[in-house]
Each structure stands twice: as structure tokens, then as C-alpha cells.
Nucleic acid binder design. Structure first.
Lengths: 261, 261
DNA sequence: TCACTTATGGTCAGTATGACTTTTACGTGG
DNA sequence: CCACGTAAAAGTCATACTGACCATAAGTGA
């Protein structure tokens, strides 16, 4: 932060936050999108977001937008900064830099159409990426997806997708929805139960319509998963039927080192 | 990015980039700092950085500042976005949001005092964190250190610290400097040589003053390290002498999930 | 009762790793 | 020329973790 010349006027920049809000509904990963009510990109789906207010941090702005769009707060879900996007041509109206946040939460009441939530709705990530999104939001969504997938490897955030109390199958379904392929139930159970502080048994159990009752758990207080639960070459069909194997949502992963901009 | 009211004026924000530039010199991790020539924080050490210019991306701004401070470009080193810092009180002059970048490079000619590099110099990270830094740069530096340490676990960036060609010992010294403790030479060798694409043998060898000559390598084209090279409980003394075990540079790690702001 | 479904638990081989030992290849000083 | 010191390179071995797979348990409904 070198300021050599007191007369120098820094370029005018507008700063916004955009939110990649993920949940798992009906067995697949969904993202909250709004329909843009104004130009540019009128009518296009876009990530929710907005300007930062004077005197608030980016994270506070993200939480505020989140609350406006979904009625949720930080106690219910996980929020983390994703990346800042700054292509000078990303917004035709001028110089707008956006800082994207990733929010992960359980399948909730459905977007409570808040104040300015014009038409917020959940869409499967695969659908959202197949169509067009406003601005550079497709790229932001891709980055958010990759971050979410990576976080599941190294942390216990997957539990943030679950409504407590939950079963190990519920948790496994989160992994399967986010990663896009099936996991071996037995090996998955071994991993998560042996990871100290991932799950906290409630003693209760859930009796389903069919099949053996499952034990119920709550989130533990561990944040990190070490050793990690890697998603390399997990191609198990878990039922002998290759047809129920879900395809990856995005064909190419960006496994690169450098942060893109 | 919801813009409901065309009359609404977004708050005025200034955006800067700050750089955490690491290298390994004399066996320990050093960071490039400048001495602030103006208020606020006159005379305090600070991370190099500056305003973004009109029409350039944050990454371009980071590369430009990097070049001004060190004379280096992206071909020589690794650059990635770290985090955006937005506390409204982080700069007493007003609303300044900064996006920090992490740069990793080999020990080079020394900072070429460029145009506005008032007094740029390398300082051991432990020293920098022990003293005071301008603004919130201590926190940024801590985050950069943690990111660098983590990157060494999962990627091959450590090679970005080495001048080609290099020996496996050179590479191991990078890990030891960044992580702050010694590694077992034999196990380290096994890991890096068996990781496809990490090292590319040159066929040449380096004949040192003492000891057996070492083979020389160049960077391979692999970016990811899987399985990762974890730094958990690596407490080997590598020579039987506990005294040469380096202490961690920072006592407490922030291993949390959520992005801080 | 059996059939069906899912949860839970166990086996076993292959891989990766930490701790440790052994051998190799230099320069150097007797 | 040889013993010595040093560090690289290579090997050993027990343990941990994982993927693939098999077995049993605990419910519901016919």
C-alpha cells in the first residue's frame, strides 16, 4: 500500500458481493439463483448479491444479502470467502469488482422471497451450468462448485448441509450429490465414524419405511479431516448397478495452482 | 448483483492490492517488506502494494506491483489470490478494501529498488511477525504464511522457490523453512521422487564440498500432490540432534473453516 | 414365515508412511 | 593409498488407511 503522491486520485471502483448458495435437495446439488429484473442481462438467471454498504465488511454484506434472499443467518450455515473477480469488462455499466462468497446450508423452507429477492429459486447446479448466467457468474459458480467439492475432502462442512439430527446415509448423500458419484456405504461409514469429532451420536434412531433403522447423529466439533477423504477414483456403484452412477456435474476440473482472475 | 434502484449511489470504495512475497534465503522463510514513507503508519514496515489502475484486473495490478518492487514477472514465480480484507477501519484515511496476493519465488538478485520501492527489503517472517506492521498487514502475512504452508502439502509449488536445476535437498530445505521443522531426508526423497511429474531428472549432478554428489532436477509438469504430503506430527530431527530442530514460526495456526474478514 | 431393503460390521490385500538402517560416492588429511 | 567424515541414495519393517468385497442385523410388508 504505497501512496506516493497525495494528489493522485485512485480510479473509481464499485464493489459488490455475490453469493454461491448451495444446498442439497431431492438428491442433487442445487444453487440459489435470481432472475434479473433489470438491464443488463435482463431476464437472465444470476447469483444473488449486492453492493456493500458504507461501514460494513464484505462478510457482513454477504450475510446481509444472504438474510435478505433466504432469511438465513450464519448460525444455520457455513459462509466463506471464495474469490474476487475483477475483469474490467465483467459489467458493461462500469468498473465493478465483486467478491464472491460460498454459502453451504441444509435444505430449508425454500427461499423466503425477501425484500428485493425478485424471483429467487433453487436450480440444480448441472442445469445452471448448462444454461447461460448473467455476467461472469457461470465462472463464479464453477469456482464455487470446485471449492465446495474440495472442502468436503478436507473438512467436516458436509454436515452443514444436513438438518440435525441426521443419519450417516444422509451425510453420504451430501457427498454423493456434491461430488457427483456414489460412495461405498461401508467404507464411508468407517471413515466418518472413526474421525474424532465429526459425528456426535444422539442415541436416537430413525426408523425408515423400508430397511434397517439408522442411528442419528449431530455435528461434532471437529473442523478438519485428517487424513482427508479424497475423491480420487471413487467409482464404486454401491449397488452393483452401473446405471445409477451419477455423472460428474462438470466435465473438466480446474486443478491448477494459480488463482485465476 | 441486484440493482433495484437506478438512482441509488453505491458507496465510494478504494481498492488496492497487497503482496505477500515469500522467498527462502539463508535457510529461512523471508518476506518482502517496504518502509512506509508517508502517513499513516509512517516508518512502519508494510507489505508492498498499490492501487489498481483503470482497466486492469486485480491480478494484473498484482503483477505490475510485483514487477515494480522486485523486477520479477509471472514466468519466474507463482502468484495466487489470497483474500480480500475489508474492515471499514483498516485504513484511517477511508474506505479501502485490499485484495492480497501470495507470491512465491526463488531467492533472486535481491529486491531491485524499482520506481516507488522506497526501501524494500527481505525480512525473516518470524521477525516480521514479532514486530509491528502497518495496517492489518500482520494478519495478512499470517494468512499468507498459512496458505503457503498448506500449498506445500497439496501442490508442487515448493519447486517455485528453487532455482533450476536443484537437488532434492534444496527442495527439502524449502519445506523445512516454510513449515519450520526438519523432515526425514530419506522419506522425503521417496515421496517426491515417486510423485509422477514433480521432479524431472536432468542427468547432471551437483558435487558439493563435502558429501556424496546429488542428482539435479528440474520442475516437472504436475501441479497437484496426491496423496498430499501432510505436515502432521513431522517431528523428526533428521540427525539425532534435537537442538537443530527449528521451532514453528507462528505458535497458533488458524485451522478454521470459515473465511475471516 | 419369507422376501426385500438398508444399516452396520468384518475381512483382506494393496498402498503410503514414519522410524530406522545400510550402502554409496565424494573430498580430505594422514 | 587408505581411513575418515559427510551427505546422498537405497532398503527394511511395522503400522495406518483405503478400496473392494462379504456377512450379518433389523426393520417392513406379503
Amino acid at each position: 500500500m504505497t501512496i506516493e503522491d497525495a494528489e493522485w486520485k485512485p480510479p473509481i471502483v464499485t464493489v459488490t458481493v455475490d453469493l454461491v448458495i448451495f444446498t442439497v435437495r431431492d438428491g442433487d446439488l442445487q444453487v440459489l439463483l435470481i432472475d434479473r429484473g433489470i438491464e443488463p442481462y435482463l431476464g437472465y438467471p444470476a447469483l444473488p448479491g449486492g453492493y456493500i454498504d458504507k461501514g460494513e465488511t464484505l462478510e457482513e454484506a454477504a450475510l446481509r444479502e444472504l438474510h435478505e434472499e433466504t432469511g438465513l443467518d450464519a448460525r444455520t450455515l457455513h459462509l466463506e470467502q471464495l474469490h474476487a473477480y475483477s475483469d474490467p469488462r465483467r459489467d458493461p455499466r462500469g468498473r465493478v469488482i465483486t467478491v464472491a462468497y460460498l454459502a453451504l446450508g441444509p435444505d430449508l423452507p425454500v427461499p423466503v422471497s425477501g425484500t428485493d429477492a425478485a424471483a429467487a429459486s433453487w436450480a440444480p447446479v448441472s442445469d445452471a451450468l448448462a444454461g447461460r448466467l448473467a455476467f461472469d457468474h457461470a465462472g463464479i459458480l464453477r469456482d464455487g462448485l470446485e471449492r465446495a467439492r474440495s472442502q468436503l475432502e478436507h473438512t467436516t462442512v458436509a454436515a452443514a448441509f444436513c438438518v440435525e439430527p441426521f443419519t450417516i446415509s444422509d451425510l453420504r448423500h451430501i457427498y454423493e450429490a456434491v461430488w457427483g458419484f456414489k460412495l461405498d456405504p461401508s467404507n464411508f461409514r468407517r471413515k466418518v465414524t472413526r474421525t474424532e469429532g465429526f459425528l456426535e451420536p444422539t442415541g436416537e434412531r430413525y426408523v425408515p419405511q423400508i430397511g434397517r433403522p439408522a442411528l442419528l447423529y449431530r455435528r461434532g466439533n471437529a473442523a478438519a479431516l485428517s487424513p482427508p477423504l479424497l475423491r480420487t477414483s471413487q467409482l464404486s456403484s454401491a449397488g452393483g448397478n452401473a446405471a445409477d452412477r451419477t455423472m460428474p456435474l462438470v466435465p473438466q476440473e480446474n486443478a491448477g495452482l494459480a488463482g485465476s482472475d
